[in-house]
């Protein structure tokens, strides 16, 4: 993956985990599955951010629109 794709992925995960419509109530969710999904997504973001730090690619593409 390219670095810009990585940065966009971090932004996407941010939005998928913290944004969007939240359904409350007695919805029969597969709660354990969703918890696992979120743990996996956080790990994914952490690995991308580590890559960014190690390769110095974070926020280096001046004014780029991805």
């Amino acid at each position: 993956m390219s670095s810009s794709r990585d940065i966009a992925l971090v932004d996407l995960v941010d939005r998928l985990l913290d944004g969007g419509v939240v359904i409350h109530g007695d919805i029969t969710l597969a709660v354990a599955d969703v918890d696992l999904l979120y743990v996996g997504l956080r790990a994914l973001v952490a690995s991308v951010e580590t890559l960014e730090r190690e390769h110095g690619i974070s926020l280096t593409s001046r004014g780029s629109a991805l």
Binding site: G20, V21, I23, I27
Partner: peptide, 8 residues
């Protein structure tokens, strides 16, 4: 958009 993992 729905939050990730929203199912019914």
């Amino acid at each position: 958009p729905m939050r990730a993992g929203t199912a019914f």
